[in-house]
Simulated scan of single mutants.
Amino acid sequence: MHALRRRRRGLLVLTGSIAVLVAASSGPSAAAKPQRADPLQERVNAIRDSGAVGVFAETAAPGTRERARAGTAERGTTKPMPRHGRFRIGSASKSFTATVVLQLVGEGHLSLDDSVEKWLPGLVQGNGYDGGGITVRHLLQHTSGIRDTLPWIPALNSAKGYRAERFRTYTPEELVGLAMRKSPAFQPGEGWSYSNTNYVLASMIIRKVTGRSWAREVHARIIRPLDLKDTSTPGALPFVPGPHARSYASFGTGTGTGVDATTLNPSMAVGSGSIISSTRDLTRFYSALLRGRLLDPAQLDQMTATVPAPELGVKYGLGLGELPLPCGGSYFGHPGELLGYHTWSGVTRDGSRTAVVYVNSDGGKGTQEAMRTLVGEELCRTRS
């Protein structure tokens, strides 16, 4: 029995020694094969490091779909950005509005060369304005010269104004009236200036042509056919439905965190910036748009025919911007912002690759550039 115990102890010592030797020999080998860095995650991390509270990105290419997130959905917590989180897409809404208008053009209900006066008589007049000389094309292309409404909206311009008027409802007529307070930036077709008022007017023309609201037409023509489950047109409802990150706006103070501005009546952005969506739905929408699922070739050609947009440093079509790709060529897309929620969306010309990223705060000095870089690099990236 004693001899047997000695043999067992010897075996245990030998076995332990072998285990130590195996571990020692396998360590350097494992270290010599570091895991390959995830390019999307690295770019998302860079956006977070620029000062954003939370970041979420999604890309889609033939046979692949990737997501990455960093930061938090709520300041001061460890709550991660939701996987299918919804957010206010801001000016990316213009791509939806322009698509509906161009569908109506394709159906023969109106022309891009129709005047604003034809559809909305007497609305754009006075103080140097003449709706008879402004066309539907001018509105969608931002070449109308009509001033932007948003500088007149207190809830969007200061923390004090936000707290006082975040639940206020605006009518489209009221918004246009605010823009008429200041004379035109230039005569129609003689310049380029980004103006949300153009798309408020476009939403009103949609109602006049169809007899139905802009929101109803967007739902019937885009949201329902594409099964965009996370996308909605909230009207005057001030809440973001479903899973979502909080948004934080600094109101130009230079503070990356700012105040919680998640609750907002977005009626001041009808047609121009009020849609709520998700990265999943935006990749689906922009891919379908450039693949020709929403517009006939003639209308898609009109949409993607661009003019210089010096304010943005890009080219602009009808509800779409054209931007250079770092690997050569160009892509289409649209940025968006509404009180802390910022997004960049991009799609290749053939609609095969899309990239969408959003943050839930104004972030730091380099946040917007980092977001734009992510979209361009991801559209260029070769996936294995």
Rank of each mutant, 00 (worst) to 15 (best):
N196G: 15
L14F: 13
V209G: 01
S203T: 03
G132A: 11
L140G: 00
A37H: 05
A236S: 15
A46T: 04
H219N: 13
P151Y: 08
G161K: 12
N157T: 10
S195I: 04
I205V: 11
D296M: 02
D230V: 05
V101I: 14
A68F: 10
V55M: 02
G128N: 06
P238C: 06
T78D: 11
V218L: 00
D49K: 15
I206F: 07
P121C: 09
T197F: 12
R75P: 00
N127C: 04
G27N: 08
H109C: 04
P310Q: 10
H84S: 09
I223N: 08
K315I: 03
T149D: 11
P172M: 13
K365C: 01
W119H: 15
A179H: 01
E322H: 00
A32T: 06
L226N: 03
L264G: 06
E322P: 00
I205W: 07
Q125S: 13
D38T: 14
T231C: 06
L325C: 01
G273V: 05
D148Q: 09
V307M: 09
P34W: 02
Q103D: 07
T253H: 13
S183A: 15
G366K: 12
P266R: 03
E377Y: 01
G242V: 12
R383H: 05
R147K: 10
G90P: 08
R372A: 15
L289H: 11
R381E: 05
N360E: 14
A23W: 10
N45H: 06
V307H: 11
P82R: 00
S287M: 05
N127Q: 04
Y194I: 04
G319W: 00
L338T: 10
T149L: 14
T15A: 15
G132F: 02
S26F: 09
G63V: 02
V240K: 05
P225G: 01
M81Q: 15
A261V: 09
A24I: 14
S384W: 13
G191Q: 05
Y286W: 12
P154M: 12
A215Y: 12
C327M: 08
K315Q: 10
G363N: 11
V357N: 03
K315P: 00
G252W: 00
Y194P: 07
S277Y: 03
V307C: 07
R6H: 14
P241R: 00
S29G: 04
G71K: 11
P172T: 04
G76D: 05
G271H: 00
T77C: 06
L320S: 02
E369M: 10
Q35P: 04
R65P: 03
T59F: 06
A52P: 13
G63C: 14
L150Y: 15
T263S: 13
G329M: 13
G351F: 01
N127D: 12
R349C: 04
R280N: 06
S111I: 02
P238K: 06
Y331Q: 07
L226S: 01
V100P: 05
L300Y: 07
V259L: 12
R5C: 07
P39A: 10
H342G: 08
R381M: 07
